[in-house]
Design a protein around this nucleic acid. Structure first.
Lengths: 230, 230
DNA sequence: TCCAATTCTTAAAACTTTCTTAAACTTTTA
DNA sequence: TAAAAGTTTAAGAAAGTTTTAAGAATTGGA
């Protein structure tokens, strides 16, 4: 992997842009969000290697955003906080942030910390199995390349299909209800008994299974949901 | 991203909607119910991480709802009560609520309490129930994969069969009456002396027992009910 | 911007599995 | 041994899954 994507989350556009300039200068890609909720969305849409999170933000603040992110992901989080928000800083670290920087900060210092975190993160493979290639009996998932292969051959999946496969493969063996699949892949709450998940499942099977009628990988668990065979 | 689902139970639509707005603003999903009974249904249908329960409600009030919920679930419950209902408040906490808020309340305070409960609750991992695999003399239950094995071989159970086995295995040794099994698995109150539980028991034995006529795991306790041998 | 291609959603029908019911049968208890 | 409790069977009803196809929405390129 050559380039890193850093998600910069701050409600102050000036700060976002300033950080962007410094990071880009080091060859680091920048994705921006103005608050916690937007950050969660971005995280859902794009590959992110590190997050810089301001504490004080509308809608969803940095502490709660950290908390939410940590439920699923283990990527490094650097919290930005003003001096006065000491309590939040502590809370943030407790909740799972990896580092913090107090405002006002020296941009060079922030960049250094970012690079340090990225270094450690890649070395340790902190992604905890979520990184690298997952291989389940000949079905492989490369999360970086967003690529799925069956017996070495690349399978061409649509974005939604890929997301479903990614969800199931990174949690191989675990059963997901149709509602759960819908909520996690579409990132939307309700599910009105429509049929779209089933249709996608069928399409996926058509592509990854030798015999879609008798699937080897993507199995149904009657009355409960679907799972990827471990 | 994992979002939290909060079940808001109040017979006053205005209050439900108001709470919803504030919670959604924090990125929290809201499920609504108008009374205790409806709440129990929702609880059974959907994944709920926290419940906000009004005390005064038709059909099934908050205190009794708390009591019922606590028989099965351990998710956090915040009780809403009017000032005058002080006794109920105390009762509610005794019965198993985690926090209470008196009406009229500051929505921001409620939100803060919700978030605090969610944080603690997830940290303690209280909600996944018992993780991992239960093993009873060669009979195993994997709750994540929704899978049961006997001597290493996977047993294909139907959803209802699985739920019965899960109930009995997670409470191994405890005897459940047919009525209890029915109520907990089907989540319906009455049981009109039908025979369906017995039929399911038979099917389960056929699948998990070497000799269904002389069961080793799923035993009958005459005149009382069934239990899974510890 | 508009067009063409791809992808997603919806709906209905076919299909499969599971659940319920009722009646007959067996075992246990008093 | 009669009554009560538990077991078994089979078939129709109910519920859940799969498949197809067509139209809607989105995307990428001219």
């Amino acid at each position: 992997m050559e380039t890193y994507n850093v998600l910069v989350v701050d409600d102050d556009k000036e700060i976002r842009d300033a950080i962007e300039i410094y990071l880009k200068n080091e060859g680091i890609q920048v994705i921006k969000a103005a608050d916690g909720l937007e950050a969660l969305e971005k995280l859902h849409e794009e590959t992110v290697h590190l997050i810089i999170l301001d504490v004080m933000m509308p809608r969803l603040d940095g502490i709660n955003a950290t908390f939410k992110i940590r439920e699923k992901e283990n990527i490094p989080i650097i919290i930005l906080s003003a001096k006065s928000e000491d309590t939040d800083k502590i809370l943030g670290l407790q909740v799972g942030a990896d580092d913090y920087v107090t405002k006002p900060f020296n941009p060079m210092e922030l960049v250094a910390r970012v690079k340090s975190q990225l270094r450690r993160y890649v070395k340790l493979g902190t992604y905890q199995g979520k990184q690298g290639i997952i291989d389940l009996n000949g079905l492989t998932l490369d999360r970086e390349a967003k690529e799925v292969t069956v017996n070495g051959e690349v399978v061409k999946l649509t974005p939604t299909e890929y997301k479903i496969v990614e969800l199931l493969m990174t949690n191989a063996g675990k059963v997901f209800s149709i509602r759960e699949i819908y909520e996690r892949v579409w990132n939307e709450p309700g599910y009105n008994a429509e049929n779209t998940v089933a249709v996608h499942i069928r399409k996926i099977r058509e592509k990854i299974e030798i015999n879609p009628k008798n699937p080897r990988y993507l199995k149904v668990v009657w009355g409960i949901g679907y799972k990827m065979e471990k």
